[in-house]
Design a binder for these strands. Sequence first.
DNA 1: TTCGTAAGTGAACAATTATTCACCAACTAT
DNA 2: ATAGTTGGTGAATAATTGTTCACTTACGAA
Lengths: 194, 194
Amino acid sequence: MPKVKDEKKVTDIHKAAMKLLIQTGFAGLKMADVAKEANIATGTLYIYYKSKEALVNDVYEHTRKEMISVLLDSKNAMSGDFYKTFASMWLSYFNYCLRYPEKMIFVEQFVYSGLIDPSIIHETEKELKPLHQFIEYGQEKGIFKSLDVELLKAQMQGAIHETIKVIHKQQIQLTDPQILQCLGMSWDAMRRTF
Amino acid sequence: MPKVKDEKKVTDIHKAAMKLLIQTGFAGLKMADVAKEANIATGTLYIYYKSKEALVNDVYEHTRKEMISVLLDSKNAMSGDFYKTFASMWLSYFNYCLRYPEKMIFVEQFVYSGLIDPSIIHETEKELKPLHQFIEYGQEKGIFKSLDVELLKAQMQGAIHETIKVIHKQQIQLTDPQILQCLGMSWDAMRRTF
DNA sequence: TTCGTAAGTGAACAATTATTCACCAACTAT
DNA sequence: ATAGTTGGTGAATAATTGTTCACTTACGAA
């Protein structure tokens, strides 16, 4: 048997590519730079990936799945009280984005880059169905405002992402009470008013 | 006197560059493609701009100024009632983004691209001071929640941008009442609760 | 009408960068 | 031990693409 592929390298490559991707975007990404950042030779990249495109798609796919499972796992772990479930989802997603802002920024940019395979868009929608249903459930219960679920989702997700980006850009340090206030804003935005 | 530069060409170039920029980002933008999209020769671009970088920076600078003035002009036009002023600003910004989603998407991506001159970031902050003060005024009056103004701004701007992006991506057609409901969500998010 | 000037052109050139490849190194089964 | 197989290397190659330039065209002043 031969020398065997090193799984750690895949992680290193992902990390390196992500770091550079958010600085430069797909077209600005240089394979030589990825290799240098991951401490391997340029040619080695082509043992793990057929092309630059394949590399970036794998990074995207991997990150996308991770983000979706962060969102849904905390929903499944929690049951009973509607607000608690909402808060649990919101917080785990927010904290994940706070810990890995590069990942969030990368995924967000990639989604609107036009490089994405339409089948992946469809796949994402299917995987986010539970979130969609959760929001609809909140509407049926009269807790959330009645309007297109996409608009409610956009309100929540947009606010979270932009908040993380501001924090990341301006190097702000958030306290726990501040995080809860942000959660409160999302909740107030979506909550039905009388 | 010689043949004279055509002002319309500058607009054409901006339009073309913007369209391609949001598809590809700075590094993916090809001067030949911009020229083709603007129906001019590649070389002509270099009569109007010294380099690709200069072109993109001009597009950014132009668009940034336009967006800021949309935001602030409607604020200045309105006076008196706090909510009305807020609604007026919110609506004119939202409608502008709705009409020119490419511009909004481009500016948003460019801000986080790392290509931007730090002095421009500083300039933008200075120009957005009135908005900042408006929000602080709302806080002093006890209308808005008391937390870091950046977080309130992020909440509003993030939600607007994400909403526009969803609409643009999914080709949703918004009715006026739906737009007002989105405004309502921003207002509820920022409003102090008792 | 003619001349001078600057815009406009697009093929050629120069730089940049993805990908390949001839070679080396590590590992394992025999 | 060693032969055979696959990972790993980085300089060489092939593409791609920003920029230039020799030339043409349009315009306005004289």
